[in-house]
Amino acid sequence: GHYRIRINGREFEIRGISEEEIRHLEEALRNGADEKILKEIVDRLRG
């Protein structure tokens, strides 16, 4: 998958993330885990 997200007015492209991972992120966001989720995304993109 290849997705664009906007955070604090800046747009980011996220590549190589699966539909299942996105559902997991959405679930966590609904549970209020904003900073933790951003850290997970950044860590994943770093490799």
Rank of each mutant, 00 (worst) to 15 (best):
G1I: 06
H2I: 15
H2V: 12
H2Q: 05
H2N: 13
Y3G: 01
Y3V: 04
Y3P: 01
R4K: 13
R4C: 11
R4P: 02
I5G: 01
I5E: 00
I5N: 01
R6E: 06
R6H: 07
R6L: 14
I7V: 05
N8Y: 07
N8F: 13
G9A: 02
G9E: 02
G9R: 01
G9S: 02
G9T: 01
R10G: 02
R10H: 14
E11M: 11
E11S: 05
E11I: 15
E11D: 07
F12I: 07
E13S: 03
E13F: 14
E13K: 03
E13Q: 05
E13D: 05
I14T: 01
I14M: 05
I14G: 00
R15Q: 07
R15L: 05
R15N: 05
R15H: 13
R15S: 06
R15D: 04
G16F: 10
G16A: 05
I17Q: 02
I17L: 07
I17E: 01
I17K: 02
I17F: 04
S18K: 06
S18A: 06
S18L: 04
S18W: 02
E19R: 09
E19D: 13
E19G: 08
E19Q: 12
E19C: 07
E20C: 07
E20R: 06
E21P: 01
I22W: 13
I22T: 03
R23S: 09
R23E: 09
R23L: 10
R23F: 12
R23W: 09
R23P: 03
H24G: 12
H24K: 11
H24V: 14
L25C: 02
L25Y: 03
E26V: 08
E26M: 12
E27I: 09
E27D: 11
A28N: 05
A28C: 09
A28R: 07
L29P: 00
L29S: 03
L29F: 07
L29W: 05
L29R: 04
L29Y: 05
L29H: 03
L29Q: 06
R30H: 09
R30C: 08
G32S: 05
G32P: 04
A33Q: 07
A33G: 07
A33W: 12
A33L: 13
A33R: 06
A33P: 07
D34M: 10
D34A: 15
D34L: 13
D34V: 15
D34H: 13
D34R: 05
E35A: 12
E35C: 11
K36P: 04
K36W: 10
K36E: 10
I37F: 11
I37H: 07
I37S: 08
L38K: 02
L38E: 01
K39Q: 15
K39I: 15
E40S: 13
E40G: 12
E40Y: 10
E40C: 11
V42N: 03
V42Y: 09
V42W: 13
V42F: 13
V42I: 14
D43G: 07
D43V: 08
D43K: 10
R44D: 04
R44A: 10
R44I: 07
R44G: 08
L45R: 03
L45N: 03
L45I: 13
R46D: 07
R46H: 13
R46V: 15
R46P: 05
G47S: 10
G47I: 11
G47K: 10
G47T: 08
